[in-house]
Design a binder for these strands. Structure first.
Length: 552
RNA sequence: GCCCCAGUAGCUCAGUGGAUAGAGCGACCGCCUCCUAAGCGGUAGGCCGCAGGUCCGAUUCCUGCCUGGGGCACCA
């Protein structure tokens, strides 16, 4: 019996109590079940009686008694105690907890995933950095978090499409093209252009492919430099991200929206919905109808569409491709967009509360020896994702970017990031996995079955074994919470916790026979438990895009 | 001025209204004849920013204030 099973049983018990007239409340769809921190409070506890007491107009302990009587007969539950103001403390049958190990090993890679798919198509857009330079550390966080979130949402049963929006139109692209051309011609790069060393490399590559570049008329040369430079830059961005284990289902081009007339269609659509007006020679969207500070221009008085207009067109494009919920993962420097995106959603007639979810993550800051270092693509002063991966590897990089809450800024100290790699908690988790792998290899060498289906799990009664079983049982709920709350860091924190529980188990409980001992039933049960732990560590690390090594 | 985020152990940070608030790092003291010591045990370290409010119950929710970070455009 997992905690999720127990929660279901409690809901059912409330339902029966209401049907019998013993309780007068609306039956909740889900109830809180938690692992008591203190020993002596059973295997699991629920404060549900306290929560229902008010609605039921009965003292909490009376509600608890009504429920306890109906739950004590439940299969797998051997004891229900009422404690304190009305907590329900559950003691599970010895084998009910142990069965978790068998469940995990049977499910294998599928353990932790939602039992049935949800009928929700989620579009997840992240990174979407301007393709005018390499992927920076600022974007690296969104790459690691967004990719992990995509995997977690998929595991939680959502149908997910990941997307990178390529801003391949507009002024920045023109400046980038001008910079590439200047570098190719050996001229000084314009002040408002891009000054990173990579511009010269791109220029050399463009020149190699188009030797006639410098002989073309200036306009044409700039267009070629833009287009070819952009293509090279995008290839590099893609390969950096793929090398980081981050895959996008779609690379959406802004330019394509322009050429396909999507912006015009979006404006027409919004006009039909009644939220567009003309003023001062410009075309405006009345976003103030939906909580924005001021109305936003769709088309400037010079006839050029705004970036905001492209955003609206892109929103409409995604919805038109069948996505129910559009998730945007943005940095805190873009938080001003939230109100605008909500307004776009509402202006199209959608419900921003269900069709849109803008996640704001705090920024990554760089420092060296405690002194802040500025990141700027235009000035060319930044550390790239590529550099970070070279320095610490994909696993440590991804893990350290994903283990913090999005509400919390991440500071990477360039002096520490390379040196501290061995302090990274990712090794603590990976080490647990490697230790298990080694143990299972030794078991195999001894001719012992790795994870016997017939193991007597009722023998797993040592406190460290019980802790481990409880920890394994949490995994599905961790995925669920990480998906619902959009918090991939929860998976990382859970894995650290689980690894700690395993290390303590390993220290206290000998698994393999030593000397001339014979393998007994307990050996088989512990091997099953250990194998189950490896499954969860491996699945969890997989959700974060971090490898689960067999050896370290 | 308005908006967003944060303030929890020396440092970095977890904590979906529940019982005695946790982890890692750092400090100190211990543990390898044995399945990987990248591990384990122990000690020290807390007005959970401040003040009100809601609640049987608040680190968690609400209001105000203080401090720190970020953001305001017919830029992209």
């Amino acid at each position: 019996m997992t905690p999720a099973d127990l929660a279901d049983a409690i809901v059912a018990a409330i339902g029966r109590a209401v049907a019998d007239g013993d309780l007068d409340v609306t039956v909740p769809t889900t109830v809180t079940v938690e692992r008591p921190k203190t020993p002596g409070h059973g295997d699991y506890a629920s404060p549900v009686a306290l929560q229902l007491a008010k609605a039921a107009r009965r003292p909490p302990r009376a509600v608890a008694e009504v429920l306890a009587g109906r739950l004590v007969t439940e299969r797998g539950i051997v004891g229900v105690d009422i404690a304190g103001p009305g907590f329900l403390n559950f003691t599970l049958a010895g084998d009910a907890l142990g069965e978790i190990a068998r469940t995990v090993v049977r499910a294998g890679e599928g353990y932790g995933q939602a039992a049935k798919p949800r009928d929700v198509r989620v579009n997840l857009e992240f990174v979407s950095a301007n393709p005018t330079g390499p992927v920076t550390l600022a974007s690296a966080r969104w790459a690691a978090v967004g990719d992990a979130l995509g995997r977690i949402l998929t595991a939680a049963g959502y149908s997910v499409g990941t997307e990178y929006y390529v801003n391949d139109a507009g002024v920045q692209i023109e400046r980038f093209g001008a910079s590439v051309l200047a570098a190719a011609a050996g001229r000084k790069i314009p002040a408002e252009g891009y000054h990173g060393a990579y511009v010269a490399e791109i220029a050399a590559a463009v020149l190699a492919g188009r030797p006639e570049l410098l002989d073309l008329p200036d306009d044409e040369a700039r267009a070629v430099a833009s287009a070819e430079g952009l293509a090279l830059m995008l290839t590099e961005i893609r390969s950096t991200l793929e090398g980081f284990g981050v895959h996008f289902d779609r690379w959406a081009s802004e330019q394509t929206l322009h050429t396909a007339g999507a912006l015009t269609k979006a404006i027409d659509d919004l006009r039909t919905q009644g939220h567009v007006y003309d003023a001062d020679g410009a075309v405006w969207l009345r976003t103030t109808d939906f909580g924005d500070d001021k109305d936003r221009p769709l088309v400037k008085s010079d006839g050029q569409p705004t970036y905001f207009c492209a955003d609206a067109a892109y929103y409409r494009d995604k919805r038109g491709r069948g996505f129910d919920q559009l998730v945007y993962l943005l940095g805190a420097d873009h938080h001003g967009y939230v109100a605008r995106l909500k307004a776009i959603s509402a202006c199209f007639g959608d419900d921003p509360a269900s069709n849109l979810d803008v996640i704001i993550g705090q920024l990554v800051t760089l420092s060296r020896g405690g002194t802040p270092v500025k990141m700027s693509k235009r000035a060319g002063t930044f550390l790239t994702l590529h550099d970070l991966v070279d320095a610490v590897g994909v696993d440590a990089a991804r893990y350290s970017l994903v283990r913090s809450s999005l509400d919390s800024p991440v500071d990477l100290d360039l002096d520490l990031v390379t040196r501290q790699s061995s302090d990274n908690p990712v090794f603590y988790v990976q080490y647990a996995h490697a230790r298990i792998s080694s143990l299972l290899r030794n078991a195999e060498a001894l001719g012992l079955p790795g994870a016997s289906e017939t193991a007597d799990v009722a023998l797993l009664t040592h406190p460290r074994e019980v802790d481990l079983l409880r920890g394994l049982g949490e995994f599905p709920r961790v995925i669920e919470a990480a998906a619902t709350l959009r918090g991939p860091h929860r998976v990382a924190r859970y894995l650290e916790e689980l690894a700690g529980v395993y290390h303590r188990f390993y220290d206290a409980c000998r698994v393999l026979p030593q000397g001339d001992e014979q393998a007994g039933p307990l050996t088989g049960a512990r091997l099953l438990l250990v194998a189950a732990t490896r499954v969860v560590l491996s699945n969890g690390l997989g959700l974060l895009g971090v490898s689960a090594p067999e050896r370290m």
